[in-house]
Design a binder for these strands. Structure first.
Lengths: 135, 135
DNA sequence: ATATTTGTAATATATTTTATTACAGTATGA
DNA sequence: TCATACTGTAATAAAATATATTACAAATAT
């Protein structure tokens, strides 16, 4: 399984891009995603820590973008939600007495690093504006 | 979280490549991965359904490769364990009344398809033999 | 025959993800 | 100023997934 963090974050940012002049409430955003508003606020907290959005508390409060959607790439969003993509590791520490067990995680890690490079190159070319314009 | 299926399967196949003339028991393989033997047998069942390995039951039984490790790519292994890589979807059905909710999954899906193409191209170039030679 | 191994089902445990509840703090505006 | 509507965050619960364990029938080597 993979968590929905990236998808949720993109969804939030797309909505904020579509309504650049409004402070959108977590309730409203949650209604579009069909998700609990608390979880929306958690992802927004993450976006805030990266200075992509600002929030206003209190009545008529909500969240809006602080950056131009053409200046932020999906790569940046990807890095805010996952550090890396990987195809997984076995849960337990492999047997260090075995030549394969000893090196497997390092070799998988090298493989995954290369995959991440490719994904990053691709996501670097797509801005939030590009993505939002599809809607 | 991501399941360890791919990593476990690669580990199994690497061991089988290293001992091409032996039937390795699930117990032995599990000892290298540090995993329950039943889970090893489950992944082997999957490999068998793809005709990459054969097993022998009974005493001194086990599993061995049926293919040349230079003829099988990591892409094929990837496809046997995951169908696709994706960066996730929000769990619930997004709101179809919302222009963003209505299209978000399709747009994410398109994005992920492109990512999968890139990953596939990369994994296509690496054979099981290549991977095993790193050990 | 006995011991060892696969194959598989059933069940349990652990972990992760998502949801809910609760409430303090803040701003709006009637 | 006071009711209302938000954010922020913690604590807890529920659901989903991943991994582990137990059990045992069937197969086969010696």
């Amino acid at each position: 399984m993979i968590s929905g963090k990236f998808a949720i974050t993109i969804h939030i940012l797309t909505l904020l891009t579509k309504f650049p002049n409004d402070f959108l409430s977590s309730e409203f955003i949650a209604g579009s995603i069909n998700l609990n508003p608390v979880l929306v606020r958690k992802e927004i907290a993450n976006l805030k820590s990266h200075r992509l959005v600002e929030s206003k508390e209190g009545k008529n409060g909500g969240t809006k973008l602080t950056v131009d959607p053409s200046s932020i790439t999906l790569k940046a969003i990807f890095e805010m939600t996952f550090e890396t993509i990987n195809l997984g590791y076995a849960k337990n520490t492999p047997n260090p007495e075995c030549p394969v067990g000893k090196k497997i995680n390092q070799n998988l890690s090298n493989l995954y690093t290369n995959i991440n490079r490719k994904i990053s190159l691709q996501l670097e070319d797509i801005t939030l504006e590009d993505f939002s314009n599809q809607f």
